[in-house]
Design a protein around this nucleic acid. Sequence first.
DNA 1: CATGTTATTTATCGAACGATAATTAAATAG
DNA 2: CTATTTAATTATCGTTCGATAAATAACATG
Lengths: 244, 244
Amino acid sequence: MNNAAPYKGNTTTQMAGRSSTSLAAAEKPAPPRRTRNKPEERHREFVRKAIELFAEVGFEAGTRELAQRLGVTQPLLYRYFPSKDDLIAAVYQEIYVNRWKKEWREGLVDESRPIRERIIAFYEDYASTIFTPEWIRIYLFAGLRGVDINRRYAATVESEILRPITLATRASFGLGGEDPPTPEEVELFWTLQGGIFYYGVREIVYRFPMPVDRPTMIGNAVDTFLAGVGPVLKRLAERDGEAV
Amino acid sequence: MNNAAPYKGNTTTQMAGRSSTSLAAAEKPAPPRRTRNKPEERHREFVRKAIELFAEVGFEAGTRELAQRLGVTQPLLYRYFPSKDDLIAAVYQEIYVNRWKKEWREGLVDESRPIRERIIAFYEDYASTIFTPEWIRIYLFAGLRGVDINRRYAATVESEILRPITLATRASFGLGGEDPPTPEEVELFWTLQGGIFYYGVREIVYRFPMPVDRPTMIGNAVDTFLAGVGPVLKRLAERDGEAV
DNA sequence: CATGTTATTTATCGAACGATAATTAAATAG
DNA sequence: CTATTTAATTATCGTTCGATAAATAACATG
C-alpha cells in the first residue's frame, strides 16, 4: 500500500475515446463511444505512454493504469503487444537503440578539433540526451531486472565512445594511437563516463539539489581528467611496452 | 492443495531449541513441527533474509516468498513487523546506517599520511563495504522508489567524506584549507566518487565482466584525479578570491 | 444500401498479493 | 502437575495483476 510516488511526471489523464460530453446522462451507463485509430499510430502512442509510465513507477506498473492513461481499455493493449514483456521490449528499443546518435563517434574522432573541445562537446550533447527520467530511470530499472539491455548498451558505449576517446587522448599526448586500447586504459575512461553519468543519477533519480550546472560540472571533470591522465597513460604504455 | 511441505525446512540456520520428537514418524500428513525462537533472534533473522531477498528481486518480493525462505509461515512476519514497509525500513537501517564506519572520516583527515595514500585507502575499504549486491542493488531500488534514503545518505557522504577530502586535497596543494569547500569544488570530488561507485554498478548490477580489478581501478582513478585536480582547484580558488 | 473486416469493449478467469482473525502448541511459572 | 502466556500456525478476506474469450461497433468496400 506504499508506493511512495517517486517521480511524478505530468499526469495528463485525458480520456481519448471516452469523453462523455453530455452530463445529463444520469440514467444510462454512458455511451462507450469508441474511437478507431490506425494500428501504427496506436502502437507508437502505446509505447510513448508506456515509457512515461514505466519511468515513473517501474515495470511493475499495471497494464490497467497504462490503458487508463491512454483512454482505452486494458485488453486492447494485448491486441498490439502479445504480452507485457513485448511492450517492455518495444520501450527498450525506442529509448536505447533509436536514440543513439552516430554523430557522437564521428565528433570524437574529428582530429581537426582539440581533444578537450571534442570530449566536452560530446558529453554535453550526450548528457542532454540521456539526462531525462525516461532514459536514466528505465535504464536502472532494466539493469536491476537483469535484462541484457545494459550489458549491450555498455558494450556499445565502450566500442563507440570510450575506445575512440582513449585513442584520441593517447594520440594527443604523443603516445601513439596504433595499438588498440588496453582494458586498463579503457577502464580509466569508464571512470570519467561513470562520474558524469552519476551526476545525472543524483539529479534525476535521487532528486538531489544540484548547485553546479551541467556544463560547469562537465568542464571541470574533463579538465581535471585531461590534466591528470597524461602521466597515467604514459606509465601504462611504458609498462605494457616492457611486458610485451 | 497445500500438501507439499509448507515449510521448506532449513535454508540456513534452523537453530532449533530442541531436537524434537521422533524423526522416524514420516507417513502421515506430516506434523507441523514448530520451533519457538526468541523474538530478538527472529527479528534479526527476518531482516537478514529480507535483505537477501530484496537485493535479488526488489521490494516487490512477496512476503510469502520471504516466509518460505525463513522456514516460517507468512502471517508470522506480521507479528514482528506491522507492515511490509516497516520491514523495508528495518532493512534500510541495517544496511545504510549500521554499516557506516566513522573511521572513514578519521582516516581521511589524518594528516600524518600523504593525501594519495589516504584517499586510496578510503576507497578500497569503502568499495569492499558497499560493492555487494545487497548494498548497491537495494540502494538503487530505494532510489527509484523515491524514498529519501538516498538523499540522506548522499548528504552524509558529502559532509563526512567529500568535504574532508576536498579540504585535505586543497591543503596538499598549498591552497589553504581555511574556507569551507565551495559547491563547485565538492562537485569535482563527486565526480571521482561517482566514477568509482559506477564501477560497482557495472560489476554488480549489470554484471559486466570487469577485466580490471578494483585496486588497480581505484589507483588509476585516484592518480589521474590527483594529478589533474591541482590546476582546477587553483583556478577555482583564484576566481572565487576575485569574486569576493 | 448491405456486407465484411477488425478495432475496441465487456466480462471473466486464475494466480498472487498484503493483511487480519481465529486457532494451536511450545515454553514458562506457580 | 496445572495454568498462563505467547510464538506460530491455519484459514481467509479483499484487491490487484496479466491474460483470454466473446460480444460489439466503427470503418472500408461493394
